[in-house]
Write a protein that binds this DNA or RNA. Structure first.
Lengths: 167, 167
DNA sequence: TTAAACTTTCAAAACTTTTTGAAAATAAAA
DNA sequence: TTTTATTTTCAAAAAGTTTTGAAAGTTTAA
């Protein structure tokens, strides 16, 4: 297997993985493509490498910038914009965690807080509802705390902790 | 807010959350519906509560059984099948982690192992490829180890650890 | 200015996933 | 048996998502 083939395989699989995490295929593939590239790339280069349209490339590149995973760069004497990915994987993980926290944890916790105010009667159903939602909130709040800690910690804190834990 | 309204809100939001985790809305909603119910429910009851078709209910109920999150029950003298959800959230989390490991971690690790065999030349691109894929595998292998540990541990091990960690 | 290079937008098309519902299969009762 | 209750399947429809590409917008250079 040569580099081109290896790159192709990895990019494809990164796209598949992205899809099962609610990130669209093109976005994940652009991310993989930039991650693997030693230099920053233009929209045209990405379009060419992934065989996608300009609109698609532009849209998802901007989503990646929005997620804090990709940055723009301007080269002197060049009119085109260049893009490069955050390479430190600890930082990448932190960014993704932060972003998902905002999109997923905050909304569900809001709903949990809202329904905890509900005026439930003392039926079996009411009790079960209270118990289950309380349990869920307790777990989610732990993850939330973990993400907050991770966001603030500067080193590879979480990864180092994981290493120790897993041995 | 009364119980019905609170249940409705929670079920809807659980469906939304599921979607961004690659679990389809109906499957997540059925799960929520059974989680909240003190008793097991028939397909018809679930169809009625969530306003979904028989085919949809049947299909997703079976997917939940497949994931090990829901079980069938037969009641004496009754022909209908009853379904109930695993209520212990630690067990639910373990099951989900196991299932996702199989579907996501294993395939990407297979590809990473495959491409690590690639015969890369000593270019900047080749070096970057090696570095990035090695980094990713190292992180994924830590998560993989964590999930394996969690699957084997019987108590609320992970949640307790999280509690200590987060304070 | 104007023209050229480039980026952004967005409606329509292509594609993917989910849902429906009726028919087929299965199981239990009469 | 035959009938009835129930579950399963699956093709087609609906819904949702992603992608395209051409037109509009923006920026820079001449």
């Amino acid at each position: 297997m040569d580099l081109q083939e290896a790159k192709y395989k990895f990019i494809q699989e990164w796209g598949v993985l992205g899809s099962s995490w609610g990130i669209n295929r093109a976005m994940a593939q652009i991310h993989a493509c930039l991650l693997l590239s030693p230099d920053s790339k233009t929209t045209d280069e990405v379009m060419e490498e992934l065989k996608i349209s300009r609109g698609n490339a532009n849209m998802n590149m901007r989503a990646l910038i929005d997620w804090g995973l990709v940055f723009k760069e301007f080269k002197p004497g060049e009119r085109k914009e260049y893009f490069y990915a955050e390479k430190d994987l600890w930082t990448v993980m932190k960014q993704i965690a932060k972003e998902r926290r905002k999109r997923e944890i905050v909304p569900i916790r809001d709903v949990l807080a809202e329904v905890s105010e509900a005026d439930l009667d003392n039926t079996a159903e009411g009790k079960e509802f209270k118990k289950v939602t309380k349990d869920i909130d307790s777990i989610i709040s732990k993850f939330d705390g973990l993400i907050e800690m991770a966001s603030k910690s500067d080193q590879n804190w979480f990864l180092k902790m994981l290493s120790k834990l897993v041995k």
